[in-house]
Design a protein around this nucleic acid. Structure first.
Length: 492
RNA sequence: GGUCUCGUGGCCGAGCGGCUAGGCUGCGGUCUGCAAAACCGCCUACAGCGGUUCGAAUCCGCUCGAGACCUCCA
């Protein structure tokens, strides 16, 4: 527990000891979703990953200020689409206001993330609510000579910035390379930009554009990158600790955020950049064009042609946490089935530990379990290792149950609190309700049925005993016989 | 074409110079009237080919394969 938290910083491409600017309050900003559609498996991985980071930071630091944007001024849909942004396109499709699209999918996003037990950020700023702040910083960038206006649009002057700063330091690119790259590519569209790699801070909107605002340069809308720069700095300060996001946003989005911020303040922007990896499905990348996307809601209901059955939110969360956040995660029914079973066993461990009896000496080493758990998390949030240690501890539980090992009351309390802390607080797992709640009536009824079955067994009437068990099985009620009598539970 | 990741046993997935993670499946066993659950044991893998090293899944090179990004817009 004394060891330090190590994080992989994309900025330096290596693992570093995490040193917060202010030990009392760690600041973290994570790129949130553009809310023009439901959250899918990729969102689940991304936000569960940063939830793990958040939860662990909360665990080891006094306070964490967590900011995540909800992008409600859309970006373009894809290369083929021109003019419309993602939200505007969806708004035409659904024949509702762009902001109604935003409201709908934002609430769906929260609904799905809540199901995955993703803790809410402290602030969810939206770019449409920060237009004046964005205009302000753009004016400053123009004043400082890092931006220029052309025909009602404002662009960031990357070459100018690169004279005194280092454009490309996050993604490992250089302006020279990009110039060569651009020369080798056939870029169809001409533009108002000085250089192809300049990016928009503000775009002029034609009258048909659904979302537009007044600005010193006429009607328009903000560029995509500027929102994150403005909102992260507004709530966390010019220089803050952690900026997170998906790997695919490393370039250009995060690179541009850095350029805008550092040109604006002259100071370093985020100290640590954390990027989570993507999801593949049966070894193939998940993408709209491949038609293999799976929404969170579909995972929970099983309503997708690629799913053999529904998987509970906690199974999905556990599945995600069983791989490292910087690794790709391959989705398949077999993998989820495995996760589901493993998670069920881990859950049962909670009860088993609670039922352990203390003794006057310990023959097992709880402190080394503790060390290994914290060591795993301190090593760049290595949840798969932490989970493996929890499974290892189940072996100890079995030995204790069998009386092969003993444990003192103090060690047992430590064991309980350790297991619970990691299971609930850090990994953010929950004990799943089995769908059907038992109540007094069902308890009584089941007691009655089990009495009948017990009587049948005493008569060695195995046919009746098995029939009762089989019929209950069909109702997803499992019977377990033991030497102390039979018990039952709802199964999935 | 450029930049950068990655390729681990039937499946998923850690490790990243020596000490053969973990989960799931399968097989054997304990328990049980039979099951289920639980427990115990077994299945010794690192894409291929070279190289460095006393020693490589881990470092280097090449080949093959997969993925992300590459400034129109966002």
């Amino acid at each position: 527990m004394d060891s330090k938290l190590i994080v992989y910083n994309t900025l330096t491409r290596q693992k570093e000891t995490f040193k917060p600017i202010d030990e009392e309050v760690v600041g973290m900003y994570v790129c949130g979703p553009t809310v023009y559609g439901d959250a899918h498996l990729g969102h689940a991985k991304s936000y569960v990953s940063f939830d793990l980071v958040y939860r662990y930071l909360v665990h080891i630091f006094p306070k964490v200020k967590y900011v995540q944007n909800i992008t409600d001024v859309g970006h373009l849909t894809d290369d083929a689409d021109e003019g419309d942004d993602k939200i505007a396109k969806q708004s035409r499709l659904e024949k509702i206001d762009p902001m109604a699209v935003v409201e709908r999918y934002m609430f769906n996003y929260f609904r799905d993330m809540d199901a995955l037990n993703v803790r809410r950020a402290d602030i969810y700023p939206r770019p449409s609510g920060h237009i004046p702040e964005q205009i302000e910083i753009i004016l400053d960038l123009i004043a400082k000579g890092f931006a220029y206006e052309v025909n009602g649009s404002v662009y960031f002057d990357v070459a100018k910035y690169d004279e005194t700063f280092d454009y490309g330091k996050l993604s490992g690119r250089s302006v020279e390379e990009m110039m060569e790259g651009a020369a080798n590519r056939t870029l169809a569209a001409q533009s108002d930009k000085k250089n192809g790699f300049d990016f928009a801070l503000w775009k002029r909107a034609d009258p048909s554009h659904l979302m537009q605002w007044n600005s010193p340069w006429g009607k328009g809308f903000p560029g995509w990158h500027i929102e994150c720069t403005v909102m992260s700095q507004k709530y966390l300060g010019d220089n803050f600790d952690i900026h997170g996001g998906g790997l695919e946003n490393q370039f250009p989005h995060h690179e541009c955020e850095i350029a805008q911020a550092e040109a604006h303040t002259g100071k370093a922007f985020a100290n640590y950049w954390l990027h989570n990896n993507m999801v593949t499905i049966n070894g193939q990348k998940m993408g709209k064009s491949l038609g293999n996307g799976i929404f969170c809601s579909e995972l929970f209901t099983g309503d997708n042609f690629q799913l053999e059955r529904a998987y509970s939110p906690m199974t999905i969360r556990f599945f995600i946490l069983q791989s490292h956040y910087r690794s790709t995660l391959d989705f398949s029914n077999d993998a989820l089935e495995a996760a589901s079973k493993g998670f069920a066993r881990l859950q049962k461990g909670l009860d088993r530990i609670n039922e352990l009896e203390a003794s006057d000496k310990s023959t097992i080493d709880i402190s080394s379990l503790k060390d290994s758990l914290y060591h795993a998390m301190n090593d760049d949030f290595n949840s798969p290792i932490a989970i493996s240690k929890l499974f290892d501890s189940l072996k100890m539980v079995a030995a204790l149950e069998a009386g092969e090992e003993t444990i003192t009351i103090a060690d047992l309390e430590l064991f309980k609190s350790l297991f619970n802390t990691f299971f609930f607080d850090i990994l953010g797992l929950e004990v799943e309700e089995t769908g059907t709640q038992s109540n007094e009536i069902t308890d009584e009824l089941m007691g009655l049925i089990l009495d009948f079955r017990k009587a049948a067994k005493e008569q060695r009437d195995w046919g009746t005993a098995d029939k009762i068990r089989d019929k209950l099985k069909e109702l997803n009620i499992g019977i377990k016989d033991s030497t102390d009598g039979a018990s039952w539970e709802f199964e999935k």
